[in-house]
Design a protein around this nucleic acid. Sequence first.
DNA 1: GCTGTAAATGGAATTATTCCAATTAAAAAG
DNA 2: CTTTTTAATTGGAATAATTCCATTTACAGC
Lengths: 145, 145
Amino acid sequence: MHVSKNSKSPPPSFFSTLREKGLRPTKQRNCVFRVINEKQDHPTADDIFVRVRRRLPTISFATVYNCLETLVGCGLVKQVNIDREPARYCSNLNPHAHFKCIKTGKIFDLPLDDLVLSKIASILPRGFNADHFDLSFSGTLTDLN
Amino acid sequence: MHVSKNSKSPPPSFFSTLREKGLRPTKQRNCVFRVINEKQDHPTADDIFVRVRRRLPTISFATVYNCLETLVGCGLVKQVNIDREPARYCSNLNPHAHFKCIKTGKIFDLPLDDLVLSKIASILPRGFNADHFDLSFSGTLTDLN
DNA sequence: GCTGTAAATGGAATTATTCCAATTAAAAAG
DNA sequence: CTTTTTAATTGGAATAATTCCATTTACAGC
């Protein structure tokens, strides 16, 4: 597994990233991308559909799914899968884990520093080449987090 | 998060565990439990249904799901959720992560020692009380793992 | 402005899982 | 050991997230 220097990387350009892959930066893709970046609340495809519809009232559900697939494939957003729940989408591209509060359903990003990342990578035996990993917690929050 | 001593714990008694919770150790539950323990290959509910049917030809799919829910709820088996795929079930009750080979689909258990467990626990900020966590990798295997 | 390709659209299809009402089996009580 | 109570099983229908498909629309290069 590749463990990068953990300095916050600049937000990738929506346009150049798509163009580099020969994909078109359509208004639907752009709108889905912006909606995810506007509010860091880990929306589901459903949530995103509702928000995008306010700006593009004729967009279809299929298109939202298509856009999400494209954006995830390009690395412009991350898909978050926790347990068996509907997928959520996340604009945080820095290495992080997720914590889900089972009382409120709210999801929190937990940044992972290089030390932790290398510790996690060290779990892998020789010959196991991970190109992706997921770490998620669920539990409760004390106080008023 | 609780970090236990990592000595292999004895396999929990199917009967006593259910009894303690006021649940009945039925032949269906027992059969599902045994099927999962016989072959450590992370079967899906579907796989389990097929295997159990060989011994209990009248068991229904709903019952397999009910049994799995019960067994997971009792801590007798673990449910493994990787990405958006059908849930898999696992008899390994010791702390471990999962690695999925994207070529073969095969899933491997990666044991987690106390040092790694405490490092993982250290990610949690104060006030975040995890009662559960999931760590999974996906990638490819070099050689003949 | 044409032409070819990619993307968007709406609706149907899929699939894992859950729900429900009726039946059966197990435990408890007598 | 029979009756009663309660829990579990069953089959089928329902649900819900996601994917598929055929058609239409939009964009890019010529």
